[in-house]
Nucleic acid binder design. Structure first.
Lengths: 247, 247
DNA sequence: CGAATGATATTGTCCGACAATCAGACAGGC
DNA sequence: GCCTGTCTGATTGTCGGACAATATCATTCG
């Protein structure tokens, strides 16, 4: 009959108030937050309460610190912060590598198409640089993995769409462990990746959205073959070690 | 030349320790966390320090409270929590409605295809129920918007892929405000949406991935037409009021 | 057996305190 | 002129203790 009347502890109200100011851009990025003592004075709560509120905003990525600094600054969530949260959530939701792969398969062709249509010279340069570094990374497994992910990332940047960039990050993060295994175990993986990247780069340079999209789809499809050849069970949970499954 | 030697304040180390336990599933979902006093005793820090750590985990969605409850329980981030964080980040990154639309366009056909391949009866029922409720929602703007979003959502669920479900949430959340305006201003919007939903439902029932994907693409494409007809500037930032632009 | 009751535990908030250290000013030496 | 060493004040990180409100749980009562 009656709704429970809402009650929010002070630390929450303080944190919501500050969050609102940031989202409404009344506190702008890069601006230093008042000191804890000052905030406590203004909100008329104890400094401990303010600190609890700040910890929430800090972990939401809305507040950050300059390197080695002490004061808190208003900041926007970095791609890493967002990606970390999302991939953590996916791990807890027991997403499997095949689920991540499927999402990648759904979204990457669209990203490639957008990148082909809207890329500028600088973005194209970055994309090429990553592809070349991958091709040159013979033997260095960690570098190779970073570059494969970096290629996706550069493509997202080239699309000029921040949504793509932010969505990409957690998927790539979850992909990496199994990707490392593929590169180790599948001899032809490097050359196939290299070829696909070259085709995508060419299509993006030519602003040929259809071809870019098509080759990106093949590129992602190859990963699935890679899982099978490397003996990684598709049902491996992300966050688990994607090692064994020698079956 | 030298890396800064890492230092982490106690509240961070405590929060990381607990986070690790949760991710490694040593603390399982639904389990009650020890009391603050007990945690302080075990970590040998002050209760205030523990509380700061808990606030971080709370805002990451890893800890939650039962309705009106006092104790903290281990929980996994709800779709709402994840979506809220991501859409907040997108707003701060000045994503525009056209960016969200583009992402939707990229990902929804894939979701529809996956749903068509893997849907079970229960998921199909839910999908149909939402579509029918939308069709019956004449006049009720809020309900109609909720149902359009709910349709996407139900499709994500039907795909059985938690990645799709979690990626969908923030996009839908950002889509809703402008969707409300479209439904208000574009007379033929309702009937077009209804038709597209019917086609998608039919294809999903028939397990026809290609057709489901195709109709979903049309459905999303229609939104873009909707923006134009409704006079919503495509460059409107998400989080802003998508109202004006009568130009 | 279910509902009221009372004791206990736990959280939310406050206060005051102190060490570490960051930021800036300031002076001295090459 | 620039770098180094020193000083001072401000700010954060952490602590201990305190207390009111209330959720939790075992008990008693109908």
């Amino acid at each position: 009959m009656f709704e429970p009347l809402g009650y929010a502890p002070a630390y929450l109200r303080v944190s919501e108030e500050i969050r609102g100011r940031i989202l409404r851009r009344e506190l702008t990025e890069g601006e230093a937050l008042p000191t804890e003592t000052e905030l406590a004075r203004q909100f008329e709560v104890n400094r401990s309460t303010v600190r609890e509120a700040l910890r929430k905003l800090e972990s939401a990525g809305l507040l950050g610190r300059r390197r080695g600094g002490k004061r808190l600054y208003v900041t926007r969530p970095t791609r890493e912060a967002v990606g970390g949260g999302l991939s953590q959530a996916l791990a807890l939701h027991r997403a499997r590598v095949v689920d991540v792969w499927e999402a990648l398969q759904a979204v990457q062709p669209g990203i490639a198409a957008a990148a082909a249509l809207r890329r500028d010279e600088a973005a194209l340069d970055r994309l090429e640089a990553v592809a070349q570094r991958f091709a040159a990374s013979q033997g260095d497994r960690a570098q190779a993995v970073a570059d494969v992910a970096g290629f996706f990332d550069a493509l997202g940047e080239a699309s000029g769409n921040p949504v793509f960039v932010l969505l990409n990050e957690p998927l790539l993060r979850l992909l990496k462990p199994s990707l490392a295994i593929i590169i180790d175990r599948v001899p032809q993986a490097r050359s196939r990746i290299e070829a696909a990247q070259a085709q995508v780069v060419a299509a993006v340079r030519a602003r040929d959205a259809a071809t870019a999209s098509d080759w990106m789809a093949r590129h992602v499809r190859d990963f699935r073959r890679g899982y099978e050849v490397a003996g990684i069970a598709l049902s491996t949970g992300v966050g688990e070690s994607p090692d064994a499954a020698v079956s």
